[in-house]
Design a protein around this nucleic acid. Structure first.
Length: 336
DNA sequence: AAAGTACACAACCGCCAGGTG
DNA sequence: ACACCTGGCGGTTGTGTACTT
């Protein structure tokens, strides 16, 4: 039997919950005069009806004089994202790079802001790589309609980084379809079995035949070798919260940021000396696109996944617009 | 104006590693 | 070798506030 944790060991009236200004004053007074010494002994010596652990947390996370309060700056934000990419949830390690910020504060900021932000940008907040999962699919019709590849390639449409990340994710999916014997997969996805099993509606993506032709040629252009293959961080490290702050104000074919192939995808965050090794690139793509025989398994797997998912409604929400089937139909036409 | 909901953040919990007797 | 203490860490919960219906 393990020993009960210090704070619950003696429940004889020790106060929990929010600290009062008076308690704060007592704690700060005591530590300024005597130092904290043994945290366990401190509350009794200082005259606080708290456990030592509670006092330590209050001091380190809130009362310490060197704590910087207020909003995180853009620079701090980028630092956290970069460090998280290399260190993971090592909040205390991350905090050492941000003077005046506590691990708790950084952790909260990550959980409430940054994780959500990355997610919405089509970046997996755990792996820091473009999401190739299906969660981006609900936005694809809008994305396709709004971006309308034809226009995207032929005109100057300002795109922000979030759109670019989504486009890259879409491109990743397209590539999975395009680099394998696609017809089997597409037939499966577009076929009546898949549709009926998942109650898909027919939803036109609204491409005219000539647009499809143009789209096909534009997609093929995307496959062409790029002169410049920047680190993806060149986009992600830019300020993103301001949708008017377009990183690529003029997207001519010459300056369209390259959409990387699955096998070429670099780490989202450039490797610093202490960062994760290149070998982790094997994790980039959960789908083994180098193995043609994996195709049908992959797409049948999607169906399985949807059936197996704990939250049925979760997948239904994602699939409701019939996006996969419509994408498959679209891509069938493109690759026919 | 009241009720419900979402969000941000402070605080707590449980576990672990290192130190000590 | 063992039991215990202590501080630290990451995950989770609770609470206050802002916003929406």
């Amino acid at each position: 039997m393990g020993r009960p944790p210090p704070c619950s060991r003696d429940e004889n009236g020790l106060k929990k919950g929010p600290w009062t200004p008076e308690e704060d004053r007592i704690l700060v007074d005591y530590i300024q005069r005597h130092g904290h010494g043994s945290w366990r002994a401190l509350p009794k010596l200082a005259g606080l009806n708290r456990c030592g652990k509670s006092c330590r947390l209050r001091w380190t996370n809130y009362l310490r004089p060197d704590i910087k309060r207020g909003r995180f700056s853009e620079e701090e934000e980028h630092t956290i994202i970069n460090l998280h990419a290399s260190l993971g949830n090592k909040w205390s390690a991350i905090a050492t790079h941000l003077p005046g910020r506590t691990d708790n504060e950084i952790k909260n900021f990550w959980n409430t802001h940054l994780r959500k932000k990355l997610f919405q940008m089509g970046i997996d907040p755990v792996t820091h790589r473009p999401r190739t999962d299906l969660n981006i699919l609900p936005n694809l019709p809008q994305l396709l309609a709004a971006a309308n590849f034809t226009n995207l390639m032929m005109t100057n449409i300002p795109l922000d980084a979030a759109h670019l990340a989504k486009l890259q994710s879409l491109h990743n999916i397209i590539q999975v379809l395009g680099t394998t014997p696609t017809m089997e997969a597409l037939n499966f996805l577009a076929g009546p079995t898949f549709r009926e099993n998942h109650q898909f509606s027919n939803l036109s993506l609204g491409f005219a035949p000539q647009e499809l032709t143009q789209l096909q040629s534009n997609l093929l252009n995307l496959e062409a070798p790029q002169q410049h293959q920047p680190e993806v961080t060149e986009y992600h490290n830019q300020p993103m919260e301001d949708s008017n702050n377009h990183q690529f104000s003029s997207l001519s074919p010459a300056n369209i940021p390259p959409l990387l192939t699955q096998s070429q995808l670099p780490a989202l965050v450039p490797a610093s000396p202490e960062r994760r090794p290149q070998t982790e690139n094997k994790n980039i793509n959960p789908i083994n696109i180098s193995n043609p025989s994996s195709t049908s398994t992959t797409f049948e797997g999607w169906g399985d996944l949807m059936d197996d998912e704990e939250s049925d409604s979760y997948w239904r929400d994602i699939i409701r617009p019939g996006i996969i089937s419509d994408m498959a139909l679209l891509l069938k036409e493109l690759w026919d």
